[in-house]
């Protein structure tokens, strides 16, 4: 018996090999996929952005030098920021309610959340168009209640984009926040109350700081997704407030200008990576442990 074990250990080097496999080798397929479908296309795009129509940084100079394009950048950041802010404002109470409500009720709310996430994006966006248009349900309701006289311009502008995108982004705020809030021991909030903290103080001094990693993760996700969002801004936004993704689509599809399209896409990628770096710096994996 003993000799068999020794023989196995000496001969095949089995256990040692298997251990190493879990370290790095298992990531190879995913890594290969990433290289093939992400790194290579991005590299091609990068190459075209500095080579078409003429070699050099001309595309970048035009993109960052023109006030029209800069306005599109500014608008993209404005919309993304607004959507992130409003999503946090609405998402936090929802995540909190989900974390404290009885599990049966919570599962119903989750079902609603997921169902809306799984519904076709285009269908949801068109639904908002119908709801928000001049003679739509929202305007009719507000007029019927006597709150306004004339229909509000809720679509084909910043308002429409913000409403439509906030709705789509909400689950991406709620889900990570829910995970973080659920892990907070309710006894910690009871302790805060007995220490003399009223609801507001408990929220600001205890609950929000403890939920911060979830808020940061959700906010980054929503902001980055919003930066590159296409369908909703294209349908609910007006021509006056075009977003970056629409610009890229126009360069590539209408103008067949791969150089400018590539340059715009790369600016977007660089901004995204920079934001991710900021998040890692402040909310890195080991921040919760307090070390």
């Amino acid at each position: 018996m003993l000799s068999r074990i020794e023989a196995k250990a000496a001969g095949s080097k089995g256990p040692a090999r298997r251990l190493r496999l879990t370290d790095f080798d298992l990531t190879l397929p995913a890594l290969g996929l990433l290289v093939l479908f992400f790194v290579v296309p991005v590299a091609i795009l990068l190459a075209r952005s500095v080579s078409e129509p003429v070699p050099g940084l001309g595309n970048y100079a035009e993109l960052l030098g023109s006030s029209t394009y800069l306005r599109i950048f500014a608008n993209t950041f404005l919309v993304s920021g607004l959507v992130t802010f409003v999503s946090l404002l609405i998402g936090f109470p929802v995540a909190w309610a989900l974390a404290v409500m009885p599990s049966r009720a919570a599962s119903v709310v989750f079902a609603i959340l997921l169902l809306s996430m799984w519904t076709n994006l285009l269908a949801r966006t068109y639904a908002w168009m119908v709801l928000l248009q001049r003679t739509g349900v929202v305007n009719k309701l507000l007029i019927g209640l006597g709150l306004i006289d004339k229909p509000l311009p809720l679509v084909n502008n910043l308002t429409g984009v913000t409403i439509g995108m906030t709705y789509i982004m909400l689950p991406f705020i709620i889900l990570p926040l829910y995970g973080v809030i659920r892990k907070i021991d309710p006894a910690i909030l009871q302790a805060a109350a007995l220490c003399g903290a009223n609801r507001w103080q408990a929220l600001v001094r205890v609950l929000l700081p403890l939920a911060m990693p979830g808020m940061a993760a959700g906010a980054l996700m929503v902001f980055v997704m919003s930066l590159g969002y296409f369908v909703t801004p294209a349908l609910l936004g007006g021509t006056a407030n075009m977003m970056l993704a629409e610009l890229i689509a126009q360069f590539v599809q209408s103008l067949v200008n791969w150089g400018m399209g590539g340059a715009a896409a790369l600016v977007l990628l660089v901004v995204t990576l920079a934001l991710y770096a900021v998040q890692l710096r402040f909310f890195g994996t080991d921040r919760m442990g307090g070390r």
Binding site: D185, A187, I188, Q190, A191, A192, V206, P209, L210, M212, M288, G290
Partner: peptide, 9 residues
């Protein structure tokens, strides 16, 4: 409390 309720942050 029975559980540890110091504010972790």
């Amino acid at each position: 409390f029975q559980r540890y309720t110091l504010f972790p942050h």
